[in-house]
């Protein structure tokens, strides 16, 4: 499996919205990169985090835990989290573990 960049984020034209592109494998290392990026965006005052999972194939347990942490941090700061472009397996996993209950799906 080739991981290009684990995380690429860009500020969308809409003010206060950040898009973070997750890599193909979300584990401890890439998860922490996502977490770090999200925290940075939230600290910058971002009110909507869009996590794009278009490239994501596998999310391990630590990855899940970190994503849950991101959701928690965002909600504490009154920001909205959007999960977008998940594949079928990822949706199934996120639903099973309850992540989808706390985010907006796109």
């Amino acid at each position: 499996m080739t991981t290009q960049s684990a995380v690429v984020s860009s500020l969308e034209p809409v003010k206060g919205t950040a898009v973070i592109h997750a890599g193909d494998y979300i584990n401890k290392l890439s998860g922490e990169q996502i977490e770090h990026e999200c925290k940075r965006k939230l600290d910058e005052g971002c009110k909507e985090l869009i996590l794009n999972f278009a490239d994501t194939e596998i999310v391990n347990s630590i990855g899940i835990s970190i994503l849950l942490g991101v959701i928690d941090t965002a909600s504490n700061k009154g920001a909205k989290v959007v999960f977008s472009e998940m594949n079928e397996d990822t949706v199934e996993l996120f639903e099973m573990l309850g992540l989808t209950k706390h985010v907006t799906l796109a």
Binding site: S61, I64, M96, G98
Partner: peptide, 8 residues
Amino acid sequence: HLISGALG
């Protein structure tokens, strides 16, 4: 992390 991630 592992416990949290295992059970959501």
